[in-house]
Design a protein around this nucleic acid. Structure first.
Length: 402
DNA sequence: AAGTCGTGGGT
DNA sequence: TACCCAAGACT
């Protein structure tokens, strides 16, 4: 276990002045039972001054025993911690670790990242998803070099202005790198706190309240460890399904556990069904046995990545007709649509697609970047050098197996 | 201020 | 299978 678990370079208690009693919870947000008599233990209002030391102590003690040993916890380099925080957005720890290790070898400093080409950066990010994170990380590195001499800033107001860094990520970086008492509210913390106070609305509907709770609970001395501990608690014990309440340091303080409602909380929003789109995709061969690929525009889904051109199949349209039309509209060339290469089903967050991929033969015209940033003829061996989204990597694999 | 933005893991 | 969810930010 780490020896520096309890650190104290930052001792500014006044930075965390809020107490629960300064911000009483509206009764409407509490789950059953009015706050009357002596039977109202566990209400959020009761996490006042007297409760806070015990809550903080018990969590920190648990963390010292059960906290995870993660690569980015072995450093205080704000750049490395920043990279980890960005990669970890909406992404599981297990997925991030290999990307994180490779990233720091390839881009060991802010300056080295700032100097890199965007294509290099996206290639290193390939497979992680949410590619705006990589584009913003790259842009922010260049801003830090330009405006702050390549040194990561230390004040919250400056950090949160950087592209890709919101309130939670700023708090995560500043507490982890400098032990500053800045609260966080990520998915883990939302779930833990929603259960602690038995929040009776979906966390999305009570963001302000949850920030208050996180800020109030935060240990002003051991801020780094406290925030890390809170996230570990959510990731390892206070899990979405089957939380291990018997092992939880806050078991006796948790209102959800008191009410035996830990499996019902937090309340989730009902989602609207997602659409399913049929897409025609062209693998266009020329007489030199090269393939035509295009680079997607920066702002759109998968912005900056390369793809095999194509588009949505209109109602009543055949796959072949769609491909021929899309290539004429988007690239400005004539092709002949041939055999089917592969069919790929892929699920994004807000829709599903079926890629109907066909071999095509180039016929005439000069390829133009009409609805993309760039088009290029490449050999099969050169495809590796370009960043592609996952569904297109599957197409490349199918091509290689020809 | 609801929609948008990827992919992998777990059930 | 299909669905949920993950160290959220941006528009």
């Amino acid at each position: 276990m780490k020896s520096d678990r309890v650190s104290s370079e930052h001792t500014n208690e006044s930075a965390n002045p809020l107490t629960a009693r300064d911000h009483p919870l509206p009764y409407s947000l509490l789950l059953n039972h009015p706050p009357t008599g002596s039977s109202d233990q566990g209400r959020w209002e009761d996490f006042g001054i007297s409760q806070l030391p015990e809550l903080r102590r018990s969590l920190l003690n648990w963390y010292a025993e059960a906290g995870r040993d993660l690569p980015w916890r072995r450093t205080r380099d704000p750049y490395a911690i920043w990279v980890s925080e960005i990669m970890l957005q909406q992404t599981q720890v297990k997925t991030v670790i290999p990307y994180f290790e490779r990233w720091l070898e390839q881009f060991p400093t802010i300056a080295s990242l700032a100097d890199a080409e965007q294509q290099q950066v996206l290639k290193a990010w390939q497979g992680l998803g949410y590619y705006a994170r990589a584009r913003n990380l790259h842009r922010a590195a260049q801003l830090i070099v330009q405006d702050y001499g390549g040194t990561f800033p230390t004040d919250f107001e400056t950090v949160i202005e950087l592209p890709g860094i919101g309130r939670t990520t700023a708090g995560g970086i500043l507490s982890a790198a400098y032990n500053q008492p800045v609260a966080i509210l990520d998915g883990n913390v939302k779930r833990v706190l929603a259960r602690m106070i038995a929040l009776e609305v979906p966390p999305k509907r009570a963001i302000g309240l949850l920030w208050q709770v996180s800020t109030t609970l935060l240990d002003p001395i051991h801020s780094r460890d406290f925030n890390q501990a809170l996230m570990d608690l959510g990731a390892t014990l206070c899990t979405p399904k089957n939380p291990a309440c018997l092992l939880c340091p806050w078991q006796t303080h948790c209102r959800a556990n008191q009410l035996n409602m830990q499996s019902e909380l937090p309340i989730s929003e009902n989602r609207t069904p997602i659409p399913h789109k049929q897409i025609g995709v062209a693998v266009i061969w020329n007489e030199e046995h090269q393939i035509l690929i295009d680079r997607r525009r920066q702002e759109v889904l998968l912005g900056g990545l390369w793809e095999f051109p194509g588009g949505k199949i209109e109602p009543g349209e055949t796959v072949e007709a769609c491909i021929q039309r899309e290539i004429q509209e988007e690239i400005g060339i004539e092709i002949e649509v041939g055999d089917r290469l592969i069919t790929i089903d892929h699920a994004y967050t807000h829709f599903r697609v079926t890629l109907n991929v066909h071999h095509c033969r180039y016929v005439s015209g000069e390829p133009q970047a009409i609805e993309c940033d760039e088009v290029r003829w490449v050999t099969v061996d050169e495809l590796d050098q370009y960043p592609f989204p996952k569904a297109n990597v599957q197409i490349i694999e199918a091509i290689r197996q020809l």
